[in-house]
Nucleic acid binder design. Sequence first.
DNA 1: CTTGCGCTAATGTCGGACGTTAAGGTTCAA
DNA 2: TTGAACCTTAACGTCCGACATTAGCGCAAG
Lengths: 246, 246
Amino acid sequence: MSLTAKPIQAHYAYQQIAEEIQAQILRGDLKPGDQLPGEAELGTMFGVTRSTVREGLRQLESDGLVHRPTPRRLEVTLPQADQLTTRAGRAMALMKVTFRELWEVTMVTEPLAARLAAQHATPAEIDQLQQLHAEMLGCEGDMDRTIALDEQFHTQIADMGKNRVLGLAREPIALLLFRGFEQIAPSAPRFYKRQIEAHSNIIGALRDADGERAEKWARMHIEDFWRGAQLAGLEDCIALSPPAVS
Amino acid sequence: MSLTAKPIQAHYAYQQIAEEIQAQILRGDLKPGDQLPGEAELGTMFGVTRSTVREGLRQLESDGLVHRPTPRRLEVTLPQADQLTTRAGRAMALMKVTFRELWEVTMVTEPLAARLAAQHATPAEIDQLQQLHAEMLGCEGDMDRTIALDEQFHTQIADMGKNRVLGLAREPIALLLFRGFEQIAPSAPRFYKRQIEAHSNIIGALRDADGERAEKWARMHIEDFWRGAQLAGLEDCIALSPPAVS
DNA sequence: CTTGCGCTAATGTCGGACGTTAAGGTTCAA
DNA sequence: TTGAACCTTAACGTCCGACATTAGCGCAAG
């Protein structure tokens, strides 16, 4: 039997403060929107100096559990999705994940997103998506803009599925994968056009609320992306770090 | 035309320090394992006081980009997976995601994990999995232990697939979903046994390196879990906060 | 009731201080 | 020579006190 021993981490004052406040948030004693006392007051409450309190607060801010709308207000807040996305994206870039890894997962997330979107999307949302698509048609050549819009297109579909878990899980992955577009496009002349067509077909399926079809087209879309990546020789290349959000 | 305005965030000294170091890490100038200068030296380098440096460092530590093996050593490190898992899990719990959302995503991640595992697993890894399974057979009744082992079983499979992206994405989700086991078991007498059987079948498929079959069994396994959740009336219940890791 | 002003207090940053202890070098013994 | 015990140094965690800046709030004026 293997001995399991978790390293006991020193209980520094600033850490304890962060943990205590965090515990109260998770327990529900402090709810998002609640305002916290000033640093000085927190100091007296916990029996430490303001410097120590500040270090603890910096950690909580970084965790996204508290937030400063203005330097004078310190309030409890939900971790923001984009913050999690940034962290996860950075981590994956640093661990040098390959496009293959990204793609394998995307092959299941995007079709799922499409199916859910077909089930839950409102006409207004689909119109918005269509508008995004139209905008994308108009900027062939502008690579950065194209990538951004592509990313947005897929994220929009995921949002339409009304599944926040999927949204959180797929976002950093998609962000990294679709950045490959840039390297693929030059190697595959007709690639761009095929991507656009696929988007059109997905929108069509969404309009008909046809989950099966939406899913199928999304799958083909991502499969096609992979063929492009293969042509560009990206398969086992490592993904680039995503653009900083924070 | 809609006015787009991204909130201008004040760049405090401590923030700039964190950002600068972070940038150097992402750029590759600082590599994991590298040791950073002491706080005092960093202070003189950046032209600020030690207090200010410390606040920036607390942020980086919380981000998982630097790490203190001991108070005297401050070294660059890769963000640890369990840290990301904790953050994501906390976030999902705080945003009160439902079991349905968790399940919908798990329905695609676990089958994928099983398929990849069938393709990449080594016999030794499968033996290890078998051992885990055996251990699970021996602790019927001990709910916490069962849940922990179940979680471990699925995580092990995901690891066997050699896809780190999938590993990162599914972990927090699975952690939250499988905690539902506890509430399901009482409502469904035969539930526990069926879960065990499914695990057996998955192991069998892995031994035969039969990706299709592994995927199919994993899907059925998760589908069955959902039936249990329905019996327990969990569908739109919100998931509980996961056990703290950090 | 809204607008403008001024005051208060909290924040960001600074400088310095102290006990504790880890890191690294030194000494000594095997 | 090598390894272990020791010692010195300096870096860390924490504290104290201070200051300029400015956000927040109350009050007066329109």
